[in-house]
Amino acid sequence: MHTIVLATQKGGSGKSTLAIGLALAARQAGFSVRLIETDPQGTLSNWQRRRNDAEPVVEPIYHAADIEPRLKMLAESGLQLAIIDTAAGLSAATTAAIRHSDLCLIPSRPAVADIEATTSTLSVARAWKRPFSFVLNQTPIRGQRIDNAADTLAEEAALDLTEVVARPLIVMRNDHQDSLAVGLGVSEFAPNAKSTEEIRGLWRWIANRLDLSATATNLLIDEVMSTADVVLHATDALAQDKAASLAS
């Protein structure tokens, strides 16, 4: 199982919306997903109550000591992906989530205050030697501010820009909030829109970063083999019926 954590000091960065969007994109790519909510504000739980589909399950975990054993149980159950949405600021639960993550995503709007607020989260990821990437979220469609923000984040992390800033950038679009309001992911709400294209692109970037392509391939192979077995059994049954009919 792989664990992705969305964390940052500043509120309003879009962690919950990104967590939901990525969970649905991963499910549509063939992965089993659990959303874990450590934010008492309950954005994910509220979203699930508005939702008609039971999947993905949203599981609230508010105590830091519960995170590691729960992730272990989920991994042993065969779950492939856990996505953890954390509260704004730093807490024991957020630190524990980052500590046990395979990738810490740090969302930030392309504004100085938001970029400065990522420092404490970055420090925790580095302290536990966890992989991390910034996600430039709620960006304008175009403008110099985006490039400046990306460059600043790369300087802050002292790493190559291609490694530290996830792609594509997520543009501020109404689809994200509109889908949240009706209990959907953006890829369900507007499957052919630019917003969905960006979220799916971000999921593919993450999957490549975590080397999840092999898992997706195995799932596809299993699905094809299962379908082939069904067809084979159906063909055998028809042949037997035909033989019985001729014999009679």
Rank of each mutant, 00 (worst) to 15 (best):
D178K: 11
G183I: 07
I170P: 05
G183Y: 05
L219A: 10
W205V: 01
L105N: 11
A88F: 04
S195H: 11
G89T: 03
S213G: 12
P107D: 03
E155M: 14
W205G: 02
W205R: 03
V186C: 08
N137S: 09
G89M: 01
A93L: 01
Q138I: 02
S187N: 15
T152N: 12
I141E: 06
L105G: 10
A149E: 13
F132T: 13
I141V: 10
R109E: 08
Q138C: 05
I221P: 03
R145H: 01
T152G: 04
I199K: 12
H176P: 04
P107R: 06
I115V: 14
A157V: 04
T217E: 12
I146H: 07
L90T: 04
N192V: 07
A97L: 06
L202K: 10
D102S: 13
D102K: 14
D160V: 07
G89W: 00
T95P: 00
T215D: 05
S133N: 08
I146C: 06
R167F: 01
E223T: 15
H176C: 02
G143H: 00
V171F: 00
D114S: 02
I141P: 05
S213I: 13
S195I: 09
A127Y: 13
R167P: 00
I146E: 04
L180S: 12
R167C: 01
A207N: 11
L169Q: 13
F132A: 13
L136Y: 04
L122W: 12
T94V: 15
V224K: 14
K129R: 12
L153V: 14
F189P: 02
D102I: 10
T121P: 08
H176L: 06
R167T: 10
A97W: 03
A93F: 00
L210I: 05
K194H: 10
A92S: 10
A181F: 07
I115F: 08
N218W: 03
L169E: 10
P110D: 03
R109T: 10
A113M: 06
G183F: 04
F134W: 08
L159M: 12
L219F: 09
V171M: 02
E223W: 13
L180M: 12
W128A: 14
T152P: 02
N174P: 07
A88I: 05
M172R: 11
A154V: 00
S101E: 04
G143E: 00
T215I: 12
E116F: 08
S108M: 07
R109Y: 01
Q138P: 03
S108I: 06
A193I: 12
T152H: 09
G89N: 02
F134A: 09
E156L: 15
